[in-house]
């Protein structure tokens, strides 16, 4: 094992996959000469050349569909969208084209395409550079949505995503880019759709992903001092999400909190909550509770009040413990 940053784990995954398969290429704004806005592709342009690390004009819709066309002809593009907010410019491409090309044309096509993008607040970048929009994509049949929380997971899941024959929306988190963590030296992959229990506990299940995994782990430390042990289930993939892992944990704790950075309303927490209610309601000893951002654009000077914190999770866990049916 070695200690590397999350952003470097992304670079390693892309580099290793590009070495392994000459059909893999990277396309996006500033990914080549500049090495990526956040440095995810530093050095790849020099190593693989302009044909495989393609700098584009500022045209998210155009280059996302161009990547799709290339994928339908046998290549395996990785598309970088600089900030998740900018993917809105490519919504026709992703929702109408990428997600539907296979099904709509009678399964004739295979479209192995990864669209990477960093989400989240943390840089005081304001309402149009800080959003978490993963739920939109999880709502579109044909897409997979991955959102890893650690350097180890981001590397293994990005490699899986690149090797997957389906379109994958790969959601990074800007505050995690600088985070260090242990990453295996060997070639490893993490299967899409498998959650990871990041901390075991028996009192309350906290289902979460991406940045909120770390807030949940902090909450776990605080709560353990009061004798409350939460189980932190890192979904890692929200479409398809690991129902088995979530249900197993609930069968143990009988209480559920779901935490995400995205605004609470209509977030992925709503889907998990509904599925648990529909399928294993009798396992629950208390109402399901959610932690999410307030329903408002991200205010740049109020980020620390806006983004859900470990304190919010602690409070919500305690609340669920006070309740029952």
């Amino acid at each position: 094992m070695k200690e590397i940053r999350y952003i470097f784990a992304i670079k390693e995954a892309m580099e290793e996959e590009m070495e392994r398969d000459e059909n893999v290429f990277l396309i996006g704004e500033d990914v080549g000469l500049a090495g990526g806005s956040f440095g995810a592709s530093r050095g790849l342009y020099d190593k693989f050349g302009p044909e495989r690390v393609i700098d584009t004009p500022i045209s998210e819709a155009g280059f996302t569909s161009i990547a799709l066309g290339a994928a339908s002809c046998g290549l395996r593009p990785i598309v970088e969208i600089m900030f998740m907010d900018f993917v809105t410019c490519a919504m026709d491409s992703i929702v109408n084209q990428v997600a539907k090309m296979r099904y709509m044309f009678g399964n004739q096509y295979t479209v192995p395409i990864v669209v990477r993008m960093p989400e989240g607040a943390g840089l005081n970048a304001g309402p149009q550079h800080s959003q978490c929009l993963e739920a939109w994509f999880a709502h579109v049949p044909g897409l997979k949505v991955v959102m890893p929380s650690t350097p180890y997971d981001v590397k293994g899941l990005l490699k899986s995503s690149i090797r997957d024959d389906n379109p994958v929306i790969f959601v990074e988190n800007k505050t995690l880019h600088a985070m260090k963590g242990s990453v295996g030296e060997e070639d490893y992959v993490i299967p899409i759709g498998k959650a990871d229990v990041k901390r075991e506990g028996e009192d309350v299940t906290v289902v979460t992903a991406s940045r909120m995994v770390h807030e949940s782990l902090k909450a776990a430390d605080i709560l353990s001092q009061e004798g409350i042990n939460i189980e932190v289930v890192d979904l890692r993939t929200i479409q398809p999400w690991d129902k088995e892992a979530v249900f197993n944990s609930i069968s143990k704790t009988h209480r559920l909190v779901i935490a995400h950075e995205a605004v609470k309303q209509f977030g992925f927490g709503a889907e998990i909550s509904a599925a648990v209610s529909e399928e294993i309601m009798d396992e629950l000893d208390a109402p399901i509770m959610r932690v999410g951002a307030p329903f408002v654009p991200v205010p740049y000077s109020l980020e620390k009040f806006y983004v859900p914190s470990s304190e919010d999770i602690v409070g919500t866990v305690k609340k669920t413990l006070e309740q029952g049916f």
């Binding site: 290429f25 155009g62 569909s65 161009i66 066309g69 994928a71 339908s72 290549l75 109408n96 084209q97």
Partner: peptide, 18 residues
């Protein structure tokens, strides 16, 4: 989608060149 196929076709051209 009006215009939707134009960049996809361009991607096929990119693949042909690649």
């Amino acid at each position: 989608i009006v215009g939707g196929g134009i960049p996809i076709a361009t991607g096929a051209a990119l693949a042909a060149k690649y």
